[in-house]
Design a protein around this nucleic acid. Structure first.
Length: 981
DNA sequence: ACCGCCGGGTGCC
DNA sequence: ACCGCCGGGTGCC
């Protein structure tokens, strides 16, 4: 197979073109640490999710067939409309049954039986995806033709062809009409083939051609006007910067937009989807929201706050009286009621333009049981027009009645049944929103509350920013739904203006049997901060988010769509953009076409992105000036030479390890001993910092099998600590986020406790480890005992403190800096918290005032630490000891203008993120970063690998590394580089 | 005629 | 469905 583009590289390219290379490097989550398992367990967690996706589908061929039974179903299609084939194994008439549905999921009919027999096997065994288009005859009464396209993995092609042959079918070639259409096949008025999927087109285009094509597409993008500015509501205290006013204007225009969503247009009295050729009477809702994907530090939080206050309801800002008349506060209840009266009236007036259909629908759709429906005589006869006998029977009956309207229940049984069938379906069409609206009518008020969901790490940031950016006299009902005492009362929550919570709380509530208050409310607006949190479609967290009801939906993210189109799909499904809610349509119309380099697909993707996302980087320009005029950022590498004694220890550990690992190389079992390799590398990195760190290191020994439970426990806890302290950028494979409350399973995989508990609960009674499918039990999860961490540092203080080459260099630099300018604040960053502890001693000795921030600190202490450091008063700390991954992306430490990075990180993006904590909005000084790197050591080798990763991330075009073997080799090479083998 | 042919009844899976 | 298919009625030309 020679597709030129794997999906990820294409997507990364799209990203780099639109967003610029600067700022966000796609996350490269390795080295990853999964002891004792073969390589497939070691590849980044993202990849285990893709198993159900046909990443390397090829076109097997096409087949013409028929859809039958049209008259029994209400789903309608247009000519050239795409349809979905759905197996129905429990059909009582035929276990091979295959339903044919239109884009909306309404059944159109069935695949003809003989064809279904052949296809059922193929579909059930996932040998091919079969996709259908109705080329013509969409208005037929009984049957219609169906053009099917078969896609699948190359290795399944033969099986599919053979199987079809056995049943007398033979695939044809791709029809010539489905060429590589350069003319726009969507957006035009024609109902031409909207979907071009050439078999060979992708390979015929050269890289150069495609690149030019990409560039042209993004040229168009730049012309798109998102430069309108808007002043925020009076209630917003902080003046907005230009780019924030633009975002405000764009976001509010999206919230109030009455336009059709992308790819929809009105044709006569129908709404028409130009990608699928689907049409329907009901106006598709536009997404009243989107993705704000600005770079970190451009003020997404402030912008979001401005949106909340400025588009408070019905396109109007937070009413002034609520700002000024704070005295009325005691009559809150009354205030709320007044509000809802006002809202009620306004929503009624909206009916005039047909937007609030649910209001109309809820009352009058109350129909009696179907058998009592009155039917017009003529319509009955018409229904039986092609069934003369029934028609005659109906006619006879009807003639005996005087009235124009017929009680259907009194019709002869034989025709009543048929009629009933047809009726219920008509109703389904007409009242599609009927069920939804009736469900909630009794308590329904116009939603007023904005729900903000963020990772715990930025919760306090949100609270702070609300405090900072909203005028103090403004009265807002604001509730932080967090902590064990959170009030789980929907009535209370829905009276708030803003509810703030975390993903974990949301997920926890959702998973708890019983009702989640967050899910029983219809929100005015849901804002997801760090929206990539929902990029794993299988995660419970994602499901909890997708199940929220809201009128307006926003995703804030600084790392836009990190790795693939799939991530974008997760966001789209949150935004509920038709028709992409169903993965099939997303896959057929965008994901695969783009993956294969099809231009129509690219255009769609581009159009989509243009429509729903706003993205500025730090280097984006407004009227020729950068959005953010940040002072320069300079990175220096300071080489360190180890002392003789340090070098001796380093060499001995290295030689010993090298011998062992060399043996693994010879045996070809490097990756099986990945834990050992990582352990060695960790020890070497520790020695580079301070030889005392070594005492902390764990000799990684696999379980011998004869361990006592206590030994096993010890071993697992040690492993987990190794993983957590190794700085190997470990993530929870379930939520794909940093580990919160890490626990280790007996199979030695580490997850967030809430995540894995969720899995266990869902899969009970026989839960399996998501990574290795070994049995897991809730009781067997081991938590990291926090007191032991404290003990460790105690223990160390018993050992007499000595310095190290790196500490010497740091102290020298700090003292030097203090001499030059005592007011400059510095961040001292390490991945090893024990190292930070060691650094404390000389800092104290030299009279530095410092503070500390690391992952083990309680939320409250962190906030204190940050505030203390950011404070510019005399006597405030000038140094912060910071663990590399502490704090979320929102962490603002712009009081510092120096960074001393004590040890290199595996992932350059992690370093960048760390630097950005002070190199961000609010930074007035030049930022100088010093990276301490020990000469002739693993650290230097790590720099090499960082560079490779940087290049890979930036120029991902044309490099394909999705292949497991390639990655395996890459990893082996990486290890070789690291320990100079 | 254990056929052919006719024409009515009928119709997804 | 202005089809195909089924099964009953029927049977020289």
């Amino acid at each position: 197979m020679s597709w030129m583009f794997k999906r990820d590289p294409v997507w990364k390219y799209l990203q780099t073109v639109q967003y610029g290379v600067h700022g966000s490097f796609p996350r490269l989550p390795y080295p990853t640490f999964f002891p004792r398992f073969e390589f497939q367990d070691v590849i980044p967690p993202d990849d285990f999710l893709t198993s159900d996706e046909e990443l390397d589908s090829v076109l097997f061929g096409t087949l013409r067939g028929h859809v039958v039974g049209l008259r029994y179903y209400t789903g309608v299609v247009n000519n050239n409309e795409m349809v979905a084939l759905q197996r129905e194994p429990n059909n009582t008439y035929d276990k091979n049954a295959i339903k044919v549905n239109n884009v909306n999921g309404n059944q159109v009919g069935y695949l003809k039986k003989d064809l279904a027999i052949a296809l059922a096997y193929i579909m059930d065994n996932n040998l091919a995806q079969v996709e259908g288009v109705v080329p013509f005859g969409a208005n037929n009464t009984f049957t219609m033709p169906l053009q099917m396209t078969f896609w699948g993995k190359e290795e399944n092609k033969k099986a599919v062809l053979d199987h079809l042959k056995k049943h007398g079918f033979k695939l044809g070639p791709a029809p010539k009409t489905l060429g590589f259409s350069l003319e726009s096949s969507w957006g035009s008025g024609r109902a031409g083939p909207s979907y071009s999927m050439p078999v060979h087109a992708a390979v015929q285009m050269t890289t150069e051609q495609l690149k030019t094509e990409f560039d042209r597409l993004f040229e168009d993008l730049k012309e798109d006007d998102k430069t309108q500015e808007m002043e925020p509501a009076e209630a917003v205290e902080t003046p907005l910067l230009s780019h924030q006013k633009q975002a405000l204007a764009w976001m509010i225009s999206r919230e109030n937009s009455k336009e059709l969503p992308p790819f929809w247009e009105q044709r006569d009295d129908l709404y028409y989807n130009t990608i699928t050729n689907f049409s329907e009477k009901e106006r598709p809702e536009n997404v009243h929201g989107g993705v704000l994907a600005d770079d970190m530090g451009l003020g997404k939080t402030l912008t979001a706050i401005a949106v909340i206050l400025t588009n408070f309801h019905d396109g109007k800002p937070l009413p002034v009286e609520r700002i000024k008349n704070q005295l009325k506060k005691e009559c809150k209840e009354c205030d709320v009621n007044q509000e809802s009266v006002k809202l009620g009236r306004n929503s009624a007036s909206e009916n005039a333009d047909g937007r609030s259909k649910e209001v109309e629908g809820s009352g009058c759709n109350e129909e009696p049981s179907i058998s009592h429906i009155k039917k017009n005589k003529h319509s009955i006869l018409e229904f039986f027009s092609s069934q003369p006998k029934r028609r005659k029977m109906a006619a006879q009956y009807i003639e005996s009645s005087d009235s124009e309207e017929i009680e259907t229940s009194e019709l002869p049984h034989k025709i009543k049944g048929k009629l009933k069938n047809a009726q219920s379906e008509t109703k389904r069409l007409k009242g599609a929103s009927f069920m939804d609206s009736s469900k909630k009518t009794d308590v329904e008020e116009r939603p007023r509350t904005t729900l903000i969901i963020c990772p715990l790490s930025v919760l306090s940031n949100w609270i702070d920013q609300f405090g900072q950016h909203i005028k103090s006299e403004v009265h807002l009902n604001f509730y932080v739904y967090y902590g064990p005492d959170r009030i789980r009362d929907p009535a209370l929550l829905s009276k708030q203006d803003i509810v703030l919570t975390t993903y974990n709380i949301l997920t926890h509530d959702y998973g708890t049997k019983g009702d989640s208050p967050l899910h029983s409310i219809k929100w005015l607006r849901v804002i997801l901060d760090e929206g990539h949190a929902i990029r794993n479609p299988n995660a419970q967290q994602t499901k909890a988010v997708l199940d929220l009801e809201a009128e307006r939906r926003w995703v804030l993210t600084g790392t836009p769509i990190q790795n693939s189109l799939k991530d974008l799909w997760s966001l789209l499904s949150f935004l509920k953009l038709k028709p992409f809610l169903d993965r099939e349509w997303w896959h057929r119309t965008i994901q695969r076409p783009v993956t294969m380099g099809d231009e129509a697909g690219l255009r769609r993707l581009q159009s989509l992105i243009k429509n729903i996302t706003l993205r500025r980087t730090k280097t984006s320009k407004i009227k020729g000036r950068p959005v953010l005029e940040l002072p320069e950022r300079k990175v220096f590498i300071q080489h360190i030479t180890l002392s003789d004694e340090e070098r001796k220890i380093y060499q001995s550990v290295k030689n010993e390890g090298k011998a062992t690992i060399g043996r693994y190389f010879n045996e070809g079992t490097v990756l099986a001993h990945y834990a050992d390799v990582l352990g060695l590398l960790l020890r070497l990195r520790q020695i580079c910092c301070h030889t005392h760190l070594l005492t902390n290191a764990v000799a990684s020994s696999g379980p011998s099998g004869s361990d006592t439970p206590e030994e096993l426990r010890e071993m697992l806890i040690k492993k987990m600590k190794l993983i957590l302290s190794s700085g190997s950028d470990e993530e929870c494979a379930i939520c794909l986020d940093s580990l919160t409350v890490p626990v280790i399973t007996h199979c030695a995989h580490v997850f967030c406790k809430p995540c894995i508990c969720q899995v266990i609960q869902n899969e009970q009674p026989h839960a399996k480890c998501p990574l290795c499918r070994n049995d897991i039990h809730g009781d067997h999860l081991l938590e990291c005992p926090p007191e032991e961490l404290a003990c460790d540092s105690e223990k160390k203080s018993n050992v007499e403190w000595t310095s190290s080459s790196k500490i010497n260099a740091l102290m020298h630099a700090l003292i030097d800096l203090r001499k030059k300018n005592p007011n400059i604040k510095s961040l001292v960053v390490s991945q090893f918290t024990a190292f930070l502890s060691l650094i404390e001693t000389p800092l104290k000795a030299s009279g530095f005032v410092f503070t500390r921030l690391d992952g083990s600190m309680a939320q409250k202490k962190r906030v204190e630490s940050i505030q203390c450091f950011q404070n510019m008063e005399a006597g405030s700390p000038t140094i912060m000891l910071l663990s590399l991954k502490a704090g979320g992306v929102g962490l603002n430490l712009c009081a510092a203008s120096r960074v001393f990075l004590m040890d290199p990180a595996w992932n350059p993006a992690a370093e960048d993120q760390c630097f950005d904590r002070c190199h961000r909005l609010g930074q007035k000084q030049e930022v100088i970063i010093t990276k301490f790197i020990v000469k002739d050591s693993v650290e230097e080798n790590m720099l090499k690998i960082q560079n490779t990763k940087r290049e890979l991330a930036a120029g991902a075009f044309g490099t394909k590394k999705t292949n497991a073997n390639d990655m395996k080799q890459a990893k082996i090479n990486e290890i070789k580089t690291l320990i100079d083998l």
